[in-house]
Amino acid sequence: KMWDIPEEEMATKSKNMSVPMARVKKIMKIDEDVRCLNIASDAPIFMAQAAEFFIEEMTAMGWQYVSEARRRILQKSDVATAVKKNEQFDFLLDFLPQAPAIKPLSRNP
């Protein structure tokens, strides 16, 4: 299982995150209410691990559609299908365009 992390690995976990914790902390602070509070040192470690799981879960779900259709490329539409078919991703429905015709979120507004 993906969360079954061995003890030795856990001891150095905060130094070997697959995503940078400083950036995770910045992303948390996009929210105005978060910016007004302090963030304990265990919070970015926790959130970074959750972000890893999230990326892996979302990709694994999208990959199912690719492999069922015997295709070789994972595309945005596969990720979008995973979002639509899983309740826990409902919060992304407003964020992800429903139809491919809608322009994707601008990275430099």
Binding site: D31, F91, F95, L96, P104
Partner: peptide
């Protein structure tokens, strides 16, 4: 486009959870 989509979604996830925690 799949990489960028997941990259955007994970930021949404982080801020969504952090906002609720706040």
């Amino acid at each position: 486009d799949a990489k960028e989509c997941v990259q955007e979604c994970v930021s949404e996830f982080i801020t969504f959870v952090a906002s609720e925690a706040a």
